[in-house]
């Protein structure tokens, strides 16, 4: 369980009125769930996400991950706690002068895996999860955006974290690649039970992936609802910001219990998909393994 208790984050603004980025937020994220945090730019959602691993230390409030109160740890304790919290970013944040394999090895090195062979083996394993096995000796500049994000996911996964924080992970990607990356995140959540917290301004991403949604505005969580509600006819969030965001049109459904299921008729539910004209060959190239979202796209078209 990730637990944010009365978390506020204030930034000094050089003599001017301080900026309140996160304003008294309390949020509980159950283990193994996918929590979406949505809001417009400047709503404070990235700061809130960075509060979870204390990349941004909250001004007040407590942050708990499992049984540990991160806000009560010293620098060394926090560093160790971060070995169990993976994070991916909009800009991928890979080291440009290291190969794909070396980039993934970094997280293992930082978490204290001293044996190089062991690091290599575990890095290769993590890359296998995101289906990057033939580009391990390439440099980030030689990869596409989606591939870079998959390497970043592998880097975060290599240490076998309990939590994966995703800061706008698909904002720099095209819709097709977005679907691929989201599928990996969904699979990782299902297969490894990793709690995923995803910050985005794209409602499609929330609808495709999340179990729970928190809507943020001006630093506050103004609304929370289960993502299943999003697919319920006539569902209308109570806040205007929530309604605005939800009126966005469903694009992709999440695989698994709450997602694509037998008897699911996309057309009847007004579901639009990212790219209905996906060239099957390109699909294999981008996402070579069995991909539930694409299966759903094709199933829906039949």
């Amino acid at each position: 369980m990730i637990s944010l208790r009365g978390v506020s984050t204030t930034f000094a603004a050089g003599g001017k009125e301080p900026i309140v980025a996160v304003d008294d937020v309390s949020l509980e994220i159950p283990d193994g769930s996918i929590q979406g945090i949505i809001g417009f730019s400047g709503a404070g959602k990235s700061t809130l996400l960075r509060n979870i691993n204390l990349l941004e230390r909250p001004t007040t409030g407590q942050v708990w991950v499992g049984d540990t109160e991160l806000t009560g740890l010293n620098a060394e304790g926090l560093r160790r706690a971060r070995h169990h919290i993976g994070m991916i970013f909009q800009g991928f944040n890979l080291v440009n002068n290291l190969t794909v394999l070396q980039n993934v090895e970094l997280s293992l090195k930082f978490s204290g895996v001293k044996d190089k062979t062991e690091r290599r083996r575990r890095a290769a394993e993590a890359l296998e999860i995101v289906d990057i096995t033939d580009k391990t000796k390439n440099y980030p500049a030689q990869l596409s955006g989606g591939q870079k994000q998959r390497v970043a996911i592998a880097r975060a996964l290599a240490t076998k974290p309990e939590v994966l924080l995703c800061d706008e992970p698909t904002s720099a990607l095209d819709p097709f690649t977005t679907a691929t990356v989201l599928q990996y995140l969904a699979d990782i959540n299902t297969e490894f039970g990793i709690t995923v917290v995803i910050v985005t301004h794209e409602m499609e991403v929330i609808k495709a992936l999340a179990d729970h949604v928190a809507v943020m505005e001006e630093g506050r969580v103004v609304e929370k609802f289960p993502a299943t509600e999003l697919r319920r006819e006539g569902f209308a969030p109570t806040t205007s910001i929530g309604r605005y965001l939800v009126s966005d049109g469903i694009s992709v459904r999440r695989a698994g219990t709450s997602g694509v299921s037998e008897g699911f008729d996309p057309a009847a539910e007004g579901v639009q998909y990212y790219d209905q004209q996906v060239d099957p060959q390109r699909r294999d190239e981008v996402a070579p393994r069995e991909n539930k979202i694409f299966a759903a796209v094709e199933g829906g078209l039949r």
């Binding site: 691993n53 990349l55 926090l78 560093r79 160790r80 706690a81 971060r82 070995h83 919290i85 993976g86 994070m87 970013f89 800009g91 991928f92 944040n93 890979l94 080291v95 440009n96 002068n97 290291l98 970094l106 997280s107 090195k109 930082f110 978490s111 970043a152 880097r155 975060a156 240490t159 924080l165």
Partner: peptide, 24 residues
């Protein structure tokens, strides 16, 4: 970016300097 990612991975300052900054 890469420094921030390294902090999130729980790297020490020395590790960040040696493995990220000086490399890039």
């Amino acid at each position: 970016g890469a420094v921030e990612a390294s902090r999130a991975m729980g790297a020490t300052r020395g590790q960040i300097i040696r493995n990220v900054l000086l490399v890039d």
